[in-house]
Nucleic acid binder design. Structure first.
Lengths: 227, 227
DNA sequence: AGGTGCTTGTGAACGCTGGATACAAACCTC
DNA sequence: GAGGTTTGTATCCAGCGTTCACAAGCACCT
């Protein structure tokens, strides 16, 4: 393969919808690499990612030019290119607040390390939980009391809230006070934050209700089939 | 309060963006009701839900007219109206496939019952897990082997996939074969399904990577502050 | 009884992101 | 060197969602 120049276009001008699909492509490339496949066409990769080939090519064109006309994409090169563009090479520190069932699930979740994350701290209020060790991928970490949050968060860039809803706003405020600007929340609540702080909220109950609505709707009108 | 007519407009013509926000409003109303607040204005409710008042009023206008001009909304009445419209009164059966950490977290998740769900089955492949009892809200359920999935899914309308990625497509195929048409997947993979089957996918790794990208972007350009 | 001040409900315009199409450029193979 | 294949991109379109602004309506006060 000839020498290539890393395109690396300005990150600002990329549509957010594209940014949200890039990790999906990365996963698909992961699997292709694991299968020993060296080259992939846009049509093939698109099908594995659940999009159309045109959309895939348009997405990639926003960050540069990675393929070879008439051939396709080199799996290894495209994977590295997207990963670099997303900035996976320098892992971010993650602190998890709340180690109930969900917190444990997140801590032990495989797929954080390859994604460029390193869990650096676990925090909870429950005295029965504080002090216990939780396995986090390779290593394991002790759960520390809520009072230590500021100290723990000092080496983190991302906060994850896995507390009950009633404790979520307090946890959020503490994270923000500790300098965390990007938060992933699983609490069933809207979190108020100062401007400049990004919150990405996932509410399992809401997701299920949306699905349930569609189910009931489809059950009531058996004729309708949507994409 | 005077007699009111339930508006109940056609469900089809409501934009999907509105449908996805209704459960959020419902949660906010839950909390207001718990606080003993009887009346709420669109501005107040909107702030608690993380949207603008105009958007909230427009969303509600799609399903009818629930407020009183000059006063606001009756919390109890609006809650019941949205819940009825979403169809919460008749609970849907949920079957969970995969009872690792995430599956356990989902099974024990509080907030399914009030949302109109009833977990009716748990399935896993691991012989060590099969047979164990898992608490699901009020009651508890035994984990059954994968071979029983069709039988278990017979009384379910929604399937939840919480397996590792490698087992997700197989689990999905079995759910579809058992007649399940609406699936919530947490597996880091695109799931291929026949047309008519709805899949809602949540990939924790993807969510974190999107957030991480924004973090690195913000860190690199300290001037930018986005809403 | 009438006026006043809110708040809802909605009509219309706007912005815009994203998606589809089609075609030219480029590369490998024969 | 020709042909076939696949990428990269320019252009256009369409549809959705959001916002703005105002009219309609209710309660309360005088």
């Amino acid at each position: 393969m000839s020498l290539r120049i890393a395109p690396s276009r300005a990150r600002d001008e990329v549509p957010s919808a594209t940014v949200e699909r890039l990790p999906v492509y990365l996963h698909a490339l992961d699997r292709l690499r694991a299968s020993g496949i060296a080259t992939v066409s846009s049509a093939d990769l698109a099908e594995r990612s659940g999009v159309t080939s045109a959309k895939l090519r348009k997405d990639l064109s926003h960050l540069g030019s990675f393929g070879t006309r008439g051939v396709g994409y080199d799996v290894e090169f495209l994977h590295r290119s997207i990963a670099d563009w997303l900035g996976v090479h320098e892992p971010l520190g993650v602190v998890i607040v709340g180690l109930g069932n969900l917190g444990h699930a997140l801590a032990t979740y495989r797929g954080f390390a390859p994604g460029g994350f390193r869990i650096v701290g676990l925090v909870d209020v429950d005295p029965d939980v504080v002090g216990t060790d939780v396995p986090c991928g390779e290593h394991s970490l002790p759960v520390r009391p809520l009072a230590d949050l500021a100290e723990v968060a000092a080496s983190a860039q991302i906060g994850v809230i896995a507390t009950p809803g009633s404790a979520a706003q307090d946890a959020c405020d503490r994270l923000v006070a500790a300098g965390i600007t990007h938060i992933l929340s699983f609490a069933p609540r809207f979190l108020a934050v100062p401007s400049g702080v990004q919150v990405r909220a996932i509410d399992l109950g809401v997701e299920l209700q949306i699905l349930a609505f569609r189910q009931r709707q489809a059950a009531h009108e058996p004729g309708a089939v949507s994409a």
